[in-house]
Design a protein around this nucleic acid. Sequence first.
DNA 1: CTTTCGACATGAACCGTTTCACATCTTCGA
DNA 2: TCGAAGATGTGAAACGGTTCATGTCGAAAG
Lengths: 331, 331
Amino acid sequence: MAGVAVSTVSYVINRSGQVSEETRLRVNSAINALRYEPNLLARNLKAGRAGSIGLIAPDLRNPYFAAVASGVQDIAQSRDMLLVLCTTQSAQHWENYYSQVLRARRLDGLLFLSGSGMLTPSLMELVQSDSLVLVDERLPGLDVPSVVSTNRRGARAVADHVLSQGHQRVGIISGPPNLWTAGQRMAGYREALAAARIDPDAVPVVAGDYQQESGYAAARILLSGAPAARPTALICANDLMAIGAMVYCREIGLDVPRDISLCGFDDIPLASLVQPGLTSVDQCGETLGRSACRLLLRLIAQPSAEDQDPIETDHPTKLVIRGSVVPPVAA
Amino acid sequence: MAGVAVSTVSYVINRSGQVSEETRLRVNSAINALRYEPNLLARNLKAGRAGSIGLIAPDLRNPYFAAVASGVQDIAQSRDMLLVLCTTQSAQHWENYYSQVLRARRLDGLLFLSGSGMLTPSLMELVQSDSLVLVDERLPGLDVPSVVSTNRRGARAVADHVLSQGHQRVGIISGPPNLWTAGQRMAGYREALAAARIDPDAVPVVAGDYQQESGYAAARILLSGAPAARPTALICANDLMAIGAMVYCREIGLDVPRDISLCGFDDIPLASLVQPGLTSVDQCGETLGRSACRLLLRLIAQPSAEDQDPIETDHPTKLVIRGSVVPPVAA
DNA sequence: CTTTCGACATGAACCGTTTCACATCTTCGA
DNA sequence: TCGAAGATGTGAAACGGTTCATGTCGAAAG
């Protein structure tokens, strides 16, 4: 050292306490000479906070999740928070693992994008104690802070649009049944069908897992009937599956949109780049991520209870019309 | 507690030391009763390691970076390492900020994907001391561990392919000049041009920034000449820019590939989904990420010096031929 | 009956900070 | 001349673990 107690150094670094100008200078020059850097690990141990938040999400490759993550990181960055990224491949096993690890590491908060739609045991414990925000997921009984987009309304809008073109025979590729978003979107579709005087229960539905391949497979099933009985439009619960379906349609010689209309959900960047552009619902993952991160940081700042800020916020969705939906040819 | 010293508890948890079966049981049941969880912050402070590594990358929205990140996370996950994600928007300011923060936090290692092509001061300090692995970037003088793909060879291959179709007038949309990858790709293009007896210096080149918009803008410049003098093929240094160029070509009424051929680099998922499929070079970001992470963990395990493992590894690239490149119509 | 040894358990030091409470030294007013 | 009040600096106790060096005890060995 340079002739001074460690506590003094601490005061110099933190600009707190009263330190004379002279010693301050002395300490600072010593710091420079020694290329000293405070050990944040120790600082955090003392402070009892980690200075970082965790993001648990199924998979970065999905552009929607990437968008959310990007929004989260934006806010975290501006608040000097580090972002720990955990991917689960939608496996409960990993969801559980990470919620445990992140708790043990005493992260300040957790953002959770569920891939499985279930709360794992470890997550369950987080619900009460720590700061946890669910993104695009809402639990039936529990009162967990969450940020979601208006999935049902968006689904209703896009389905309305498809039906308004005159399609009578439609097929639905839905999401994983136990995911909240999938349920909401399905509800929106059914609303639209009912409004168009089509019996929702008579419409063929195949569930996918939000991945492109499952869209491909689901399309195969939905289009396996006789051409006359085939749907003239496929309503897909997300863009990736819609694109998978599009690939399948092309493979069997169907022209999109002439022979079959297609719509998606999420409005990932890809949606505007495929040919024809995919009609979709924009839920702006980035905004969602930002908003979720802001909520989380607010919860961290004032540990729960008496804040009257809404604990669940809804984000608007927007119908984005492109070329993939047109009136059916045989109309 | 349940009648035993804290050191004993520590031994129980870590299975080290010699603890009788009886006390072990007693301690364990107390642990369960109290829902005790060791504080990893403290553990890490003592151990002097953080149990996490950092990934500094320009932007998650770019599917190539997302792929790399995904590969990194795969390996980290399997090694019980947490991944701290930092995005820089290619700004030196943030690159510098994060390399400093991550050092102060005593992260175990750092993976760096440069967006600016320069080593910032803080990163410079990391070069010597800590464990740092560069991904798809190589510094001229310095001997920094790095994992790269064979950019030059890949570029050569795709350019060879374009030229072999008979294109005489080509234009190049290159990457940011001070990025290593951009330089390598450019070198590959020039090799191919020379081999096809075209003077590389006579070929129009516009530099973009690897983003889609810049591809759009670059295409506008390259295609601004008289139709007869216009390039019949655009060689783009990455897929995003190629797609931007494709959008521009369509806007001015050019048909891809009939009127103009286009090729990219990276082979992001999008490349196979646009219409026509984009001819590209697969460098498998995920594999790269995995490999980089593995190298980093190896460096962390045995702190440098006498390991004869190669410190720079090259990953092969693969030409992926799709429909976007065909012979010029006027050939 | 003493010594030796191994099996268990423990106290205390340490990791690198922050922060409270106190010690020291001026300086100033009464 | 003395005491009080600032102004500065410091020692030590945390934070929550790990781990070394001991200590204690019973049993086997001499």
